[in-house]
Each structure stands twice: as C-alpha cells, then as structure tokens.
Amino acid sequence: MKDVYITRIAKFLPNKPVDNEQMEEKLGVINGKASKARRLVLRNNKIKTRYYAIDENGNVTHNNAQLTAAAIEALCDDKFTTKDIELLSCGTSSPDQILPSHASMVHGFLKNRNMEINSPSGACCSGMNALKYGYLSIKAGQTENAACAGSERTSSWMRADVFENEVAHLKEVEENPILAFNKEFLRWMLSDGAGAVLLEDAPNGPNPLKIEWINGYSYAHEMETCMYAGAEKEDNGHLTPWSEIPAEQWGKKSLFAMKQDTRLLGNNILQKGVDSLKQVYKKHNIGPDDVDYYLPHISSYYFKQGLYDEMAAQGVEMPWEKWFLNLEHIGNIGAASIYVMLEELVASGKLKKGDKILFQVPESARFSYMYAYLTVC
C-alpha cells in the first residue's frame, strides 16, 4: 500500500466578501419585510462576512461546477496542469442539477482529458468522502494522483424567490406568512465557495502533508433526519420525497429549499460528535495530546463552547490553543469548509515538520461525522 500526500491546496471564493448588513440585499427580502430571525441567527453564529456567487446587480456569477473547476485550476501551474490529473473526486451538498453528476459537470468545465470521476452525495461530509475516495485510489496503487474538492453554491437555494410561492400560498389560506424558523435558520448561515487538494503518492512540493488515515461514522440507524432539501418532513420523522409530492405543491411548500430541524440539531450534534471522536481516538490509539492543530468544521460559533464542554464532560477536551477556525470571515461553506480551513492554516506559515493535524467534519443531515489525521512532512 502506498503512502498518500496532500501536495497542493487551493480555494476559490467568488466576488467580494458580503457583510451582515448586505446579506438580505443579496438574497432578497421575502414578502417585502425584513427578516426578524436574521439578527438572532447572526448574533449566535458570529459570522461577520461570507461569499456569494452573486454580483452587485443580483446576477449569478458562477454555478457550483464552475466554482469547483476554478479551485481545481488554482491547484495547477506549468509544472502540473489539469491534463496531468488522473482522478477527479468532487463532493457537494448543493449540486447544480440532479443529473448529470456534479463531478461530471466539473470535468466538463475543465476540458482536460479522459479520466475517472467520482461524485459522493450528502452534505458537509461529501467533501471528506471525495477526499477519501482519492486517498484510497492512490493508496491501492490505482492512480498516482487525484484532485479532490468540496464546494457549495447555496445562495441560489436561499434567494427570496425560492420562498415567494410558499408565502403567497400562506396568505391565500390566511395562515401566518412568516417562514418557519427551520427554513429561515439556514438562510443566514451558509456561504458559497470551493476548496481543492492535489493528492500524490510522493511528498512533492514545499508543504506536503501525509494522510495517516480517514474514518467516518454515521448515526442514521438511530437518528431521524435533521437537515434536508427536496422532501417534506412528516410529524413522525419520516421524509416524503419530492417525487411523491404533486408538482403543484413544490413551490407552495418551498420543497427545494434547505431546511434544518433546529430542535434535533441542538440536542444531538455535539453529543454524537464527541461520541464518534472517542471512537476514532480508540481505533487509532491517540488522544488530544497527539494533536497539534484541531480543525473542527462547526456551522456556528454558537456550538464552539458547547463542543468544548461536551469534550470535557466525556474526558477528551481539546485545549483551546490547538483549535483553528476561520468561520467568522469565510462563513459556513459546507463541504468546502475543511478544505478552505486547511488552505488557510498552511498559508499561515505556522506549521512545522512533524506537526499533527486532526479534521473533524460533522454532517447534521442524519448525523454523520468524518475524521482525518495528517502529518506535516
């Protein structure tokens, strides 16, 4: 089995940073009224700027596949071009269409060469699953390199026109025309962008990182759905998919908007996260003392102290000086967040040979968690 190294890292964040006062202008006002939930959500998540693939005139500037292609192109130069990539593996929560696959569309924009592609589905963990597929391919000797990416373009799912039909319908039936908090919650949380890494079977480049292992854990066998899109959640927790709902109801229910069951999220995301963290520590016989940089993907700073407290309660607290976060100025880019976090850490110049880096990426969709452990070469 071959060793696998991250040899290049890149990101692509569209347009200029959007601050909290510009958000509603970019995404649009629903029902002609400013959101009452926005300031509450922003006060809790403490995100100050994020990125949208929307220009000053409200026009879309990039789709998801274009964001991803731009990040992958940023990995390349005259010594390693897009035509040298053997495997393309791309994860996202927000593909541009149901079919073709996301990686297939990215490949179409790259216009580089015939090669293997992979499109893991899911939410935030899809970016990590994209990384693991490339890692395993190289480790098994199937390929010598792989370009792996995580990306999101959720702004298009959060624009006001996505919700207008539902608001109009609620008015018709004389119901309160205020969106449920579970729908509006994510509107003020998410950001657009893409991150990518090049994996190789040799420690090339100035800052190679050896991937020691990647592991994942799912709690779907015991947990109902928490975050979803393209479905309606019933009172019993069951999801009714869009394909079983009459087409005339899709707009009235904002069926394709992302939604979050905030009750389930708050009660479970941290406890399951630390439970899976303990499992991965046990599996590899490591603990907090074996980590120099801890990169947790958290959707909101609201969960930061809670995560630390849950670690302490379960006897595996991570000292604050080892935490590395960039949520405040980058925003929550879902599947891309861990890639962009790593890019920023490497660019900081803080890393030294032998340092150990631990990724923790949760996915609230149905409570999944992915971990990776890296060594600075």
Rank of each mutant, 00 (worst) to 15 (best):
K11F: 04
E328S: 10
A10N: 05
D78R: 09
I298N: 12
Y5I: 05
A335P: 07
E21A: 12
L198K: 04
L136Y: 06
I9V: 09
I138A: 01
V41L: 11
W213Q: 07
G193Q: 01
R159G: 08
G108F: 00
I98H: 13
K350Q: 14
S254N: 06
N59G: 13
C226F: 01
N118C: 10
Q279A: 12
Y133W: 06
T375D: 10
L325S: 15
G32R: 06
V340A: 05
G266Y: 00
N57E: 15
D192L: 02
P14Q: 03
A231G: 05
W250R: 01
N165R: 12
A196E: 11
Y5R: 08
K210Q: 14
K259A: 08
G251E: 14
F163L: 08
N176W: 07
L110P: 00
F80Q: 04
D261P: 06
G134C: 04
P362D: 12
R50D: 00
G58P: 10
Y228R: 00
L198P: 11
A220R: 09
E310L: 05
S126M: 05
A312T: 09
M1V: 13
P17W: 08
G354H: 15
G230Q: 01
Y228S: 05
S155V: 09
W250I: 01
K353G: 04
M258H: 13
K79P: 11
E25A: 11
K304C: 06
G205R: 08
W188S: 03
N64A: 14
A10H: 00
M23S: 07
T262H: 00
F359D: 00
